[in-house]
Amino acid sequence: MQRLNNMKIHFPKNNGEIFIKSINDKIKNSFFPNTKNFAESFEQILKSRTHEQDFIINELLNGFVTSKSKAIASGNKVPVIDRMVEAFSKRNDFHIVDHQFFAMFGNPNKPRSYVKKQLEELIKMFGLISKELTVEKDLRRSEKKVYTFYTFTDEIIKILEKKYIIIDSELGQARVSEAFDRNVFICMFLANIATNQDDIEKIGGPFTINGISSIFALILLLSFMPKISVNETNPILKDPSFNENTMSVIPKSWMMKQVLEFLFEPIIKIVAYRIGGGLWLSKIIDSDVNKRIHSQIRMLLKDVCRWHLGQLVRVEIPIFVEIANIFTEILITGNASKE
């Protein structure tokens, strides 16, 4: 109750200083850099990658169940993105051939339509470029065949080479390091949003805007949530997988539909406005589809937090701690000035 009261008092202060600070310092800088240059934005997002951050973003985007065809981290049929990472890792020049890609899903000469469709969608979404190679006589049927290569733009390749290519100087070989993973593509996806935030169609329409705003609203809300101290006799303390130092129990009452709906809507709108301005805000309308997108975020909580004997447990990862610290700081300065 006290936390709710504090939120009520401090959230509107100084034109929403808490939100401006939290979103600008912790979310925008790391996930939506203020630049129109795709490569620059990609580099900045890539730099702010940490294991914990990857986990959160990955889990949240993974759980984006409604994004049937637009999901980048999970496929309805096959985890295409994983295969894409695998295909790119096999060569050291960050090129893949459509034929090689199709071979991962069956006969490459008769690729299934959904594999072709998903590949095309992913290529578009990540801003990859294609190059064609015509072979006069292929080995199989001695027929003319056109192969399509997909690769990154030159600027992105330079960044990737710097970060993910390991050159064995003795052997003179170059290979893609194990650090090259699906999160590189997620960074591409975020960079695409950051640079094209004014072009709604390019970033996947209102769907993406609602989804992204909801995800970061959830991160904000989770960071603002208070810890509760559990009774000494609570069975959760005896649970070997519960670590008191890195985990905290957050009140379940905050997760009730009635509370979340009330808190969620304005925070989604604030996040949308701070990231994409009036254009994004105008897309957060109370349509049925949007309501469903927002309500599924409530389900996603389970992927970020864990349930331990009916208690919701937050793992204290840096982004939560940093945003919580901003809130506490403003709270303390607010109280001090009052005195």
């Binding site: 379940k252 997760m255 009730m256 992927d303």
Partner: peptide, 18 residues
């Protein structure tokens, strides 16, 4: 499947919450 896994998560959350 991933969808069934999400459904199981939904069921779990609903039991604990509402």
């Amino acid at each position: 499947s991933p969808v069934v896994y999400q459904i199981i998560n939904n069921i779990l959350s609903l039991y604990n919450l509402d």
